[in-house]
């Protein structure tokens, strides 16, 4: 059995660090892992997608449409964009945060006001969580990713890993406590 996870967001939101911590934990659990993140032009404020697959033996590093068991979105519209990748019965976790793209800012496109309502109507397993708001409340918007990681670990029921201890290898010491708080907060949101 292979589990497919998609992390989607906007360049600069920290999807890469989130996937690093997640894969380190999965490696501790003894899984074979493939992870794919295409970077380059997409860093410049564009959509970013990280794909993670784990199981006994994983071949392909990427995920096709209708194949994702869980999608974690750092932004509402990105959840909408990634929806075709969700497997039937899969789980969508999305932050309620909005980031306006250039076509929206220049009035060439409209940001849908009812994205969450539409998602809620379509997807049975949907969790809308205020990860970014929580990160701001904790004092650093950048821990949004670890808050979402906490939520994802809960969704996937990944047990037997000291996730909060693992964070120490990925964030500077002075930021460890706030990252651990963000993880707990995200875990409690599911």
């Amino acid at each position: 059995m292979t589990t497919n996870i998609l992390l989607v967001g906007v360049g600069g939101q920290g999807t890469i660090l989130m996937s690093k911590v997640l894969t380190a934990g999965l490696a501790q659990m003894g899984y074979d892992i493939k992870m794919s993140e295409i970077h380059g032009m997409s860093q410049r404020g564009g959509t970013v997608i990280t794909q993670i697959r784990f199981g006994d033996k994983v071949y392909a590093p990427n995920i096709g449409e209708k194949e994702a068991d869980v999608i974690v979105s750092f932004e509402k519209v990105e959840a909408l964009r990634a929806l075709p990748f969700l497997k039937n019965g899969g789980t969508m976790v999305t932050d309620e945060h909005e980031i306006y793209s250039m076509p929206v800012l220049t009035g060439k496109a409209e940001y849908p006001s009812n994205a969450l309502v539409a998602l809620a109507e379509a997807v049975e397993n949907l969790a809308i969580i205020p990860a970014r708001a929580k990160a701001l409340e904790l004092g650093n918007v950048r821990v949004q990713n670890i808050c979402l990681l906490g939520a994802l670990v809960k969704v996937l029921k990944l047990k037997g890993v000291d996730w909060k201890g693992l964070l120490a290898s990925f964030v500077p010491e002075k930021a460890l406590a706030i990252n651990q708080q963000a993880f707990d907060a995200g875990y409690a949101m599911i």
Binding site: M41, V77, L80, L83, L86, S101
Partner: peptide
């Protein structure tokens, strides 16, 4: 699978 009748506005790199 899932689809909804709502377009995500494009997000080109800038």
């Amino acid at each position: 699978g899932y689809s909804i009748d709502l377009q995500a506005p494009p997000r080109p790199p800038v």
